[in-house]
């Protein structure tokens, strides 16, 4: 647990990232806010991430999810918010931390990966190379939620 406390202190010192434990006395559940990267259909939208820390952390990766039906993305299950990202699974390393994890998810928004689709239709659009349709459809879902 001391490793999480250390992370908590370093994250607190940084102003430009929104990553905080849900309550200050329980570091097992965290929330993060990421901003849609510019020049992507996600621009202008903020997304909430729910992070729960397993007992074996940092030997086991943190479990991270979007809110359900909030993230139209080829590597996110739209219904559940589940994320498919290598570092959250087999490519996890104990030298990664929560900040790095959140930043990687933010990067996933501008760099979707067609090889591991959790959203089948968006996966087809990516494989077909139909970026216009991909972006339009993502914008439709994001706008509809408002």
């Amino acid at each position: 647990m001391s490793r999480l406390i250390k992370e908590y202190k370093t994250i607190n010192a940084q102003d430009d990232i929104l990553l905080f434990p849900e309550t200050a006395d329980n570091l097992n559940n965290w929330t993060a806010m990421i901003t849609g990267p510019p020049n992507t259909p996600y621009e202008g939208h903020d997304f909430k991430l729910y992070i729960s820390i397993p007992d074996a952390y940092p030997n086991s990766p943190p479990m991270v999810k979007f809110h359900r039906e909030a993230m139209p993305h080829v590597n996110v299950n739209y219904e559940t918010g589940e994320i498919c990202l290598d570092i959250l699974k087999g490519e996890w390393s104990p030298v990664y931390n929560l900040l790095y994890t959140v930043q990687s998810i933010e990067r996933l928004l501008s760099e979707p990966n067609a090889d591991s689709p959790l959203n089948l239709e968006l996966g087809i659009l990516m494989r077909e190379g139909d970026k216009t349709a991909y972006d339009s459809l993502v914008r439709y879902y994001l706008q509809r939620q408002k």
Partner: peptide, 19 residues
């Protein structure tokens, strides 16, 4: 202790820093 504990979790023997 840290690295051996990681080895017991990891599926391979890659270095956590450089792979």
């Amino acid at each position: 202790d840290c690295i051996r504990k990681w080895h017991s979790f990891a599926t391979d023997l890659k270095c956590p820093i450089c792979r």
